[in-house]
Amino acid sequence: MHQHVTITTTTGDHSVAEQIAADLVDRRLVACAQIGGPIRSVYRWEGTVEFTEEIVLHLKTTAEQVDAVKQVIAKLHPYDVPEVIVTPIIDGSAEYLKWIDDQTRPA
């Protein structure tokens, strides 16, 4: 069994979130992309505190796919520095984790 992860990213545009999600699922790089929001993000950018409405994506995949997922996000994401946070899934239902494996292997 593979090591499973959730990758989180945010974007300011719902259509960009859907494009990233669809591309990653279509390429079998992630098994599932959950799109949520809007959320309110507060952060410092270029010396100014910013308040931004964003859309959040939670991407379920395997550790082996992380680098490829990061490349796709970098290519499709409009931000200069897109959020990409990888969190290990330490446990889950065996059936769901197997489903992630099945969905992220080449067709």
Rank of each mutant, 00 (worst) to 15 (best):
A74T: 01
V66D: 13
V86L: 13
L76R: 13
T87F: 01
A63H: 12
I55H: 09
S93Y: 00
A94I: 04
F51K: 10
T87V: 15
T48Y: 00
L59W: 07
E95P: 01
H58N: 08
T52C: 01
Q65D: 10
D67T: 14
P78D: 09
D91N: 07
I73A: 00
V84S: 15
D91V: 02
H77M: 04
H58Y: 01
V56N: 00
T62H: 15
I55W: 10
E95S: 09
E54H: 03
L76H: 14
L97S: 13
D80L: 08
I73N: 06
E54Y: 06
I73E: 03
V66Y: 09
D80G: 01
L76D: 02
E64R: 13
P78C: 01
E95Y: 02
A74G: 11
K70T: 12
L97R: 12
H58P: 07
D67C: 03
T62W: 12
T48S: 04
A68S: 08
V56Y: 13
T48D: 10
V66I: 08
A74H: 12
L57W: 04
E64W: 09
V81F: 00
P88Q: 09
Y79N: 14
E54F: 07
K98F: 01
Q71T: 01
G92M: 12
V72A: 14
D91H: 15
A74Y: 10
I89K: 14
D80Y: 08
Q71P: 02
P78L: 02
V81Y: 00
I55E: 08
D80W: 00
Q65L: 08
K70L: 05
T52P: 01
K60T: 11
Q65V: 06
I89P: 02
V66A: 10
L59A: 03
E64I: 07
V86S: 06
V72G: 13
P78Q: 11
Q71W: 05
H77V: 00
T48C: 02
T87N: 08
K75Q: 13
L57Y: 02
A94W: 06
V72E: 15
T52M: 10
E53S: 05
D91C: 00
V84T: 06
Y79W: 09
I89W: 06
D91I: 00
E95M: 12
E64L: 05
H77D: 09
V72S: 15
I55L: 00
Q65P: 14
V72P: 04
V84R: 14
A74M: 09
V81P: 11
E53G: 11
D67A: 14
Y79Q: 09
V81Q: 14
V81L: 12
V72D: 02
H58G: 13
E64M: 10
Q71V: 09
P78G: 14
Q65R: 15
I90M: 11
K75D: 02
V69K: 11
I73K: 13
A94D: 08
V69H: 03
E83K: 14
T61E: 07
Y79F: 11
L57H: 12
A94G: 14
K70D: 04
I73T: 12
A63I: 13
F51S: 05
D67I: 11
E64H: 11
H58V: 04
F51E: 15
Y96K: 12
G92N: 04
A94F: 03
V49N: 00
G92K: 08
E95D: 14
P88W: 04
Q65H: 15
